[in-house]
């Protein structure tokens, strides 16, 4: 079972809500749209403070995405909010044509991504969204790992011109990054190490750090790098890291197909083929359960990262 330490925890969606509120204070072009999930997305503070810039869309996600494209056309910076499932798969064609192909400055902000949504089960636990979004030309894909990083990313994407998919989650999760450390497209070194590099995104960054501690106790030195921006990928940081360690573990709360591991394998295959083990969901839907139970059952726990590191080192 995955164990979290007793440090301060907050949900990443609160990082989004607090970041959006701060943006509202300083940038009057920022507008919010939400499809009947204002509380779940933590958009209430923005809604209360800036009611004229908040659009309640009802349960109509397709209309929300295309309307955001219209707002962006007219110079606004729209942030749409709903669950990751309804932010991507349900509205893929709207995003493809009205946002990505039309190159609109829309920020698609998606909560409750992955298995850690928990008890609602597989209908809501999208594990394909990173893949769907990263395939779209011109789309930036960001999956921050804690409250601080989600808040920083929310604020940063308002200053970036172009479509962005920002993915975050539901459960309370340890806060461990420096709020000033986030930069779009820049890998974040979390821990140095010489035997293996673990590239992780989202909630799995924490699991990877815990795994690195466990590995250290066994005399294995693991480097942990947080790839919060899956597209564009920080190729240089990744290639520099693996030049030393010569083997790789990827860790993410997503399908193996189409996720972070997939992107890193493509990069390595083209530049420097090396052994890789992928901690990800293996071609399966999720199910109901607590977040920790689900991470454990689907092989995304701390012990799974530890095991993957040992396997990949053995393949060097």
């Amino acid at each position: 079972m995955t164990n979290l330490t007793s440090m301060e925890k907050k949900d990443t969606r609160s990082g989004f809500g607090d970041g959006l509120y701060e943006l509202g204070l300083k940038n009057d072009k920022v507008v919010g749209l939400c499809a009947d999930l204002t509380g779940s997305l933590k958009m209430n503070k923005f809604q209360d403070e800036f009611p004229e810039r908040f659009f309640q869309m009802g349960i109509a996600e397709a209309n929300m995405i295309s309307m955001a494209a219209g707002l962006a056309t007219a110079g606004k910076i729209p942030f749409t909010g709903t669950f990751a499932n309804f932010s991507t798969g349900r509205v893929y064609d709207q995003i493809r044509q009205s946002v990505a192909y039309s190159n609109k400055n829309v920020k698609i902000c998606a909560s409750h991504a992955g298995l850690t949504l928990g008890e609602d089960g597989a209908t809501h636990q999208i594990l394909e969204d990173i893949g769907l979004m990263k395939m779209l030309p011109g789309m930036t894909v960001i999956n921050p790992c804690d409250y601080n990083q989600t808040k920083a990313a929310t604020i940063a994407i308002a200053d970036y011109e172009g479509p962005v998919y920002l993915r975050f989650g539901r459960p309370k999760w340890p806060i461990f990054t420096d709020p000033d450390s986030f930069e779009i497209g820049k890998a974040l070194h979390m821990k140095t190490g010489t035997d293996v590099t673990i590239f992780a995104t989202g909630h799995l960054v924490w699991n990877s750090l815990e795994a690195a501690k466990a590995l250290a106790e066994e005399g294995i030195s693991a480097e942990v790098i947080n790839i919060h921006t899956i597209k564009p990928l920080d190729n240089k940081a990744i290639l520099d890291a693996v030049a030393n360690t010569k083997c790789v573990v990827t860790a993410e709360e997503h399908q193996m197909n189409g996720g972070l591991g997939d992107s890193i394998c493509q990069l390595l295959a083209r530049h420097t083929p090396l052994p890789v083990e992928m901690v990800a969901v293996n071609d399966s839907f999720g199910e109901s359960g607590t977040p920790m139970e689900l991470l454990d059952k689907y092989g995304l726990g701390i012990k799974d990262v530890v095991a993957a590191a040992k396997r990949v080192i053995a393949r060097k």
Partner: peptide, 30 residues
Amino acid sequence: TTHEGLPGVRIASGSLGQGLSVSCGIAQAK
């Protein structure tokens, strides 16, 4: 499409059903 920079076009269309929503967004911005 806006993709090739043709003046006068503000949004790509072709996949049907999206233009009224886009127009709502522009109208709200106005």
